[in-house]
Simulated assay, not measured.
Amino acid sequence: MSQTRVAVLVGSLRTDSLNRKIAELLAAEAPEGVVVDIVDGLENLPFYNEEIDGSTPPEAATHVRHQVAAADRVLVVTPEYNGTMPAVLNNAIDWLSRPYGAGALVAKPFAVIGTTPTPYGGRWAHADAARSANIAGAVVLEDLTVSQPGVEVDVLNDDEVLAKLRGALEALVAYEAAPSSAA
Rank of each mutant, 00 (worst) to 15 (best):
S2T: 13
V6E: 04
S12L: 05
S12M: 07
L13V: 07
D16S: 08
N19I: 04
R20S: 06
K21E: 10
A23F: 03
A23S: 01
A30C: 11
A30Y: 12
G33S: 04
V34H: 11
V36R: 00
D37R: 08
G41K: 07
G41D: 04
L42E: 02
L42D: 00
E43W: 10
E43N: 11
L45I: 05
P46E: 01
F47L: 14
E51I: 11
E51P: 05
D53N: 13
S55L: 13
P58H: 09
E59Y: 08
R65Y: 02
H66Y: 11
Q67V: 02
A71T: 01
A71K: 03
D72Q: 12
Y81S: 03
T84I: 01
A87S: 15
V88E: 01
S97R: 05
P99E: 02
P99F: 14
A102L: 14
A102R: 15
V106I: 13
A107F: 05
A107V: 04
A107K: 13
A107T: 10
P109H: 01
F110H: 09
I113M: 10
T115Y: 02
T115R: 06
P119I: 09
Y120W: 15
G122C: 05
A127L: 14
D128T: 10
A129K: 08
R131S: 07
V140N: 09
V140F: 12
L141T: 00
L141K: 01
T145E: 11
V146E: 15
G150D: 14
V155I: 13
V155G: 05
D158Y: 04
D159E: 14
L162D: 00
A163P: 04
R166V: 02
A168Y: 05
A168Q: 04
A171I: 00
A171H: 11
E176K: 08
A178E: 13
S181V: 12
A182S: 13
A183H: 14
